[in-house]
Amino acid sequence: MSAPQAAPGERLETLLRWLAADLGASPGPCPSNAVIAERVGLASYNQATNLLTRAQNAGLIAFETARQHQQRVVRVLPAGLDMVRRRTAPPPPPAPRFADWLATARPGDRYTYFTGHLAEARGLPLQKRGVEMRLALAQAAAADKAASDGLVLLTTQRLPDGQCAYLAIRRRRGA
């Protein structure tokens, strides 16, 4: 039974995550195209060959030949390991500051949960989001959830420097 088809953008990442988990930065035996097709969710061996070639051409993996067995050996290069680390970074912790405020806020209390341009920040690629930005976006996600639960009203206020302050205003309980 074959694995479900993966989306094209996910196949290379899936291959790299798998190889990096098995090998790290050390060279090791390259799995057969049949095994790669099964593990990554490809329909054919040719697609596995094409995927390996794409990863090699992008400088993410390198092939060597083991002299004793003439077996194909693969090594995940630093760029491939970096790609895996960026994609598998743990999500930021839940927004404790917003949660703490929400637990003690009275109706009408205001909390600035984000300053800047939220739509632009949400559109940034993951690799361009630093820890501080990820935490700020977690605050915004917590505020969105509280608004959808009817606990707060969300609004914005234009600041003199052109930025926006995103505010959560505590609603009355049961309102």
Score class of each variant (00 low, 15 high):
residue 79 A to P: 09
residue 72 R to V: 10
residue 55 A to R: 01
residue 80 G to I: 01
residue 85 R to Q: 15
residue 71 Q to K: 13
residue 86 R to I: 14
residue 71 Q to E: 12
residue 80 G to Y: 04
residue 64 E to Y: 11
residue 77 L to M: 15
residue 84 V to C: 04
residue 59 G to A: 01
residue 86 R to Q: 14
residue 71 Q to N: 10
residue 74 V to K: 06
residue 54 R to D: 12
residue 56 Q to Y: 03
residue 70 Q to E: 13
residue 59 G to I: 05
residue 80 G to P: 09
residue 80 G to R: 01
residue 66 A to V: 05
residue 85 R to I: 08
residue 76 V to E: 02
residue 82 D to C: 02
residue 74 V to L: 13
residue 65 T to G: 00
residue 69 H to Y: 12
residue 60 L to E: 06
residue 78 P to E: 02
residue 77 L to I: 09
residue 63 F to D: 01
residue 74 V to C: 08
residue 61 I to W: 10
residue 80 G to W: 06
residue 83 M to H: 05
residue 82 D to S: 13
residue 69 H to K: 12
residue 54 R to K: 15
residue 83 M to G: 03
residue 76 V to K: 02
residue 78 P to N: 07
residue 55 A to K: 00
residue 60 L to T: 01
residue 86 R to M: 11
residue 79 A to K: 14
residue 76 V to A: 02
residue 86 R to C: 06
residue 55 A to T: 06
residue 66 A to P: 00
residue 73 V to M: 15
residue 81 L to V: 03
residue 72 R to Y: 06
residue 84 V to D: 02
residue 71 Q to F: 05
residue 73 V to K: 04
residue 57 N to C: 01
residue 59 G to Y: 11
residue 80 G to A: 02
residue 67 R to P: 08
residue 62 A to N: 05
residue 74 V to H: 11
residue 58 A to T: 07
residue 67 R to E: 11
residue 67 R to H: 07
residue 81 L to T: 05
residue 73 V to H: 13
residue 80 G to V: 04
residue 59 G to Q: 06
residue 63 F to M: 03
residue 72 R to I: 03
residue 59 G to M: 03
residue 65 T to L: 10
residue 53 T to E: 09
residue 85 R to K: 15
residue 74 V to M: 05
residue 80 G to E: 00
residue 53 T to S: 10
residue 68 Q to A: 12
residue 71 Q to T: 14
residue 78 P to D: 04
